[in-house]
Each structure stands twice: as structure tokens, then as C-alpha cells.
Design a protein around this nucleic acid. Sequence first.
DNA 1: ACGTGGGGTTGATCTGCGTCAATGCGGCGC
DNA 2: GCGCCGCATTGACGCAGATCAACCCCACGT
Lengths: 246, 246
Amino acid sequence: MTAQPVLKAIDIPQLKTVCSSCSLRELCLPMGLSENEIEQLDQLVYTRRRVRRGENIYRAGDPFASLYAIRSGFFKSNVILEDGRDQVTGFHMPGEIMGLDGISADRHACNATALEDSEVCVIPFARLEETSHQVRSLQRQFHKVMSREIVRDQGVMMLLGSMRAEERLAAFLLNLSQRFVARGYSPAEFHLRMTREEIGSYLGLKLETVSRIFSKFQEEGLVSVQQKHIRILHVDGLRALLGRGQ
Amino acid sequence: MTAQPVLKAIDIPQLKTVCSSCSLRELCLPMGLSENEIEQLDQLVYTRRRVRRGENIYRAGDPFASLYAIRSGFFKSNVILEDGRDQVTGFHMPGEIMGLDGISADRHACNATALEDSEVCVIPFARLEETSHQVRSLQRQFHKVMSREIVRDQGVMMLLGSMRAEERLAAFLLNLSQRFVARGYSPAEFHLRMTREEIGSYLGLKLETVSRIFSKFQEEGLVSVQQKHIRILHVDGLRALLGRGQ
DNA sequence: ACGTGGGGTTGATCTGCGTCAATGCGGCGC
DNA sequence: GCGCCGCATTGACGCAGATCAACCCCACGT
């Protein structure tokens, strides 16, 4: 098992954040809030943390106190199983909220590991509940964020429960592409921040299978793959792979 | 595709409900609330609906208006895929809340189908948000309910992503057993409300595989299976099957 | 420039589960 | 009481993806 450095709060510079001037406000918690209301959010989301590649924002079992909105960078959620394997349960990009799993038992249920140097906004949960008690639209938005997480997870369950390997990888690429687009990046060309093994863990496949299918997609002219650099050449071809669920 | 009768609101008798006298209040939304606070819940959860086996409380695409707490009976969440297959995403028993997936897009994302004649309490969501805006502990409890759903889904993702067929079925039986215990039923002996095909769909297996593994478990003396009647004979044996995830 | 190591690719083989097919069983309607 | 139908069981066979193993490539440190 590789060393898993713990985040040292002391080492991390505390930076001033403001949602009202954040370029991600249309994706993140402020979505749909008025200027006024966003300013109330600014009152509670007042710190930002840098996290370096390989570090965890929180780990399974840690007491739960805050949610984290990704400001820049890329994360995986994962659990270390008894046998030492690292089971990946999700990938997260800027504008997404991590830590929702911790609310139920006041402890985090998984780790949140940075896949590249990143920055997160710290959202103290008690204060979020307090503020959303006052700001109705924030309450509503927060509920939507949680519900979206539930829907997303159920989508993954369906993927794992009913798709074959090729379909899973196609769905994965299309999903990443969509999320990049929503953030103003190219839908067709991006860098994978995770290894083949992490993709495989997330998709319920072995790394060799992931690699083989990338090669197959490449042969078929659907994508161009060079290590972690991906270019989607034929979106509709990938989409066509879904639909017909064996 | 089998006929899927739609719930006719008119046909369903509207019964008076009260959380304060409900035997499930320690599992359901009222958990952790004071007598006073539960009485406020009573104000909003005022109707109950009977649903007969095979009927849906809601279907994917239906506009979202209410959550549903199961008062008695048994449900599955499911999605009908384009090719007509019925993909099961969850099983639900008394005290559990259904419909959380609908919040994110104001439309339900799946069907909720009764696997036996059942009763649910209707929780109008707008009023729940309103009341939880006033009753702090209700807000907190509701957030916990949503978070628990997220954690549960991630558990299923891990099951689907990393376990072999036997492990999945063992985990499934142990999970059912636990949930029955929490409701005061026997941990060891219960009736499955769902078919082998529905179990298989949920666990990402084919019905024949489910059946074979039931037989294998029986040969090994772990459980006794007679059609839908299950008796767990050797809990630790089932538990031992987990742990060592290939 | 060179060596090292972690990730990635590719091939050969194995196997768990899916697929197809036949048979059994039990509950329900007539 | 009888026959039907949906569900469950069991067997034979095939294949997708896992496993094992060799090799490659590139980034990085010295």
C-alpha cells in the first residue's frame, strides 16, 4: 500500500474565497441564487485549501465537519478495502461538491484524494445548515445537489449492473466529455487525470481490459489515445455503443 | 413488456396518518425529533395511500411533488430501459423514504413499484422544505436521510464493481437480514418479495446464476431455501464469504 | 545522457458467469 | 380437482473478461 499523506491544516495557506466572483458559480452551490443570496454564501465559505497530488482532503472514518467544493483540480473518491485494494467510487471536477456521504453518520465514508494539485473551498456544514435555514433558495439548491448525487450514483449502478465492458468505457468517456463541456473545456480533447487501474476500479474492470478497449476504440477510429491524452473523434460512434445493452 | 397499471389517485382511500403514533418513527423521518417536533410533522404528512402489488407510486419522468415513506409492504425502484428490460436499482422496506431522486430535476428518475400490497405516507416536498425551514432538527434529519441514501448507493457500487457472484448474493442476504432486524423481524428467516430475476438485475447477475448460488449455499449448509422462503443457518459462513474480495 | 520505475500495452490461456434449453413446482382460476 | 402459467431449478456449452506474463514507453532524478 502506498503512503497516503494526511492533509496538514497548518501547512495549507488559508485564502480568501468569494462565491460571488467565482467563475464556477453557475455549476456549484450558488446556482440559481440571487446576488444578495450569494453574498450570504460568501459569509460562510471563507476558506480555500490547496491540496497536492496524492493528498486526501478527508479519509474514511474522519469526523465530518465540512463539505468541499472543488475550485480547481481533480479528485477521486475511494475506499481502501481490507485487502489493501483501492476501490474508486467516483471522480470529481471543479464545481462539484464532495463530502455529502459524511452527513449521515457524522463521519466520512470514503477518502477524497487529489489526482493533481488542486484547490477546494471549505464549506463548514453546520454553518451551511444554518444559512440554508435562512436562505430558502440555498436550502433548495443544496437539496438539489444531494439529489443529483443520488441520481448520479444510480446511473453508475445501472452501468455496473447491466453494461458490458465496451459500453462502460464509452459511457465513461461521454460522461467526462459532457462534464468538461459544462466547464467550458473542449468536449473532444482532454487529459485523463487517473490511471487505467483507477478507471478500471471505478468501472468494475481490470486495467488490462481498459487498456485493450482503448486500443480497440482507437483501431475503430472512435478515439485517439496517447497515454492519458484522449481525443474523441466520433462521438456518435461512442453513443451508438450504448443503447443496445447486450 | 408486462402491463404497468398507473396509480389512480381517485381510487385510493385517503387515510389519516400520524407520525407521532407510528411504530416506525425511530427509523423514518421522525427519528431523533422531540414529541413537539413530531407533531409538526403530523401537520404535513397527512395522507396515506394504499398501493397494490404491481402498481407504481410514481414512474420515471413523472413530475416530482412528494416523497413517500413506506408504512407497510415492499417496493423496488426500477428503470425500464429502451430495450424493455427492467433494471432494478433498489429494494425498499417499511420506514424507508422513496422519491429522493426526483428533487434534482423536479421529475422522478425511476419507477417505484410495489412488490406486495403496501401503504405509503405521502410527504409533500414543498411543505417538507417549509417545515424543515422552521424545525431545525427536521432539517438535520432530512439531510441525514439523503446522505444515507448516497452512502447506501456507494455501497452497492462497490459491490457491483468488486465482488464476485457469491459475494454479491451473500452481501445481499446479510443486508436484508440486518434491515429486517431493525424492523423487529427475524434476522434469520424471511420471505423474499422479489423474483430471482429482480435479485439478479439488482446484483448485476442473471437469474440462473442467482438460482445456482442459492442452491450452492444450501448444499453448503449456509442457508435453507425453499422458493421465496429463506432461512439463514450460518451467518458467519456468509460473512466469511465477503472479506476476501478476490 | 543514462538508468530507473511506474504506468501502459499486448499476447496466451483460463474461468466465472451468461446463454440456451429442458424440466420441475406450486398457486390460482375455472 | 385439474390444468395452466409464471417462477425456479438444473445441465451443457460458449464467451467476455480475468489472469499471468513479457515487454514498451516516457517522465524523472542524478
